[in-house]
Design a protein around this nucleic acid. Structure first.
Lengths: 139, 139
DNA sequence: ATAGCTGTAACTAAATCGGTTACAATATTT
DNA sequence: AAATATTGTAACCGATTTAGTTACAGCTAT
């Protein structure tokens, strides 16, 4: 199973907010037309980003605006904001048999390896910032 | 969303096969009792492992046996065998708007980053072999 | 007051997962 | 050749999660 597209939607959303900064009001409807999803999906995304302190959303008047410098937001921040991997990346079978030597030890053996694999992925996500994308967007 | 427990079930299964090598016939039922899942789940797992050339399964007579040295099987091999991440690890929203500068570029910007994050995770999985686990199992 | 937009609840359809039953096919044993 | 044990696999289930959608109350600037 894969990591939900909420993540890429959120990246797209934030990137659009920075890219159009000052040019137009970034309503959920406009962002939705760029991402090509329902505006409600964008509003939900914006709520997640807002909870993580990555955007400000203006109820009533409308529009989402940035609150940080793009160089201060990594892919990992966005990934964390939308909570696409609740806890561990890897599901583990529920209750290995403690009366079997293998069942008894499987968590001890496997957990650290899974954790470091997840961490390796997440560390990679920390290396890219929105500023990088905005730069590449110019070209 | 997370990576299916088929992966940890498969690791558990293979590890049990090596751990009990020569001691008892490793039927799907016995393995299932260690993993604590339905035997059919184990049979399905064994079919995946067999397709990947990681075990031999004996129809009729019963039992699964190893075909490689444990040092030759990495977590990544097992992960690949059970196909828990079909293609990319990250889902991507379907059809970003090509008429928007952000929508037009989002794949170009994001795809390489997602790929390298996935690769970092998978590289980490390549570092651990079943031999490592069998060693640690002694203690 | 109005207009436009957000915030959020509620429901839906589709996908996937792990679980389970059932049974034909297979290979040893007697 | 028959009996036995086990694999191989299809079929179906309930649970969960996802993204999509409708609907509407609440907010805020004008």
């Amino acid at each position: 199973m894969k990591i939900t597209s909420r993540f890429t939607v959120a990246v797209h959303t934030l990137l659009a907010i920075y890219a159009f900064e000052g040019e137009r009001k970034m309503t959920s409807e406009f962002i939705a037309s760029s991402v090509n999803v329902n505006p409600v999906v964008i509003r939900r995304t914006l709520q997640s980003l807002k909870s993580a302190g990555l955007v400000e959303v203006r109820a009533g008047t409308g529009g989402a605006v940035s609150v940080k410098k793009p160089s201060e937001i990594t892919l990992f921040d966005i990934y964390s904001a939308v909570d696409c991997v609740d806890g561990g990346l890897f599901n583990f079978h529920d209750s290995p048999n403690p009366d079997c030597p293998v069942g008894k030890s499987i968590h001890r053996l496997l957990d650290p390896r899974l954790a470091s694999a997840q961490k390796a992925m997440e560390s990679e996500l920390k290396k890219a910032t929105l500023a990088d994308f905005l730069n590449e967007l110019q070209n």
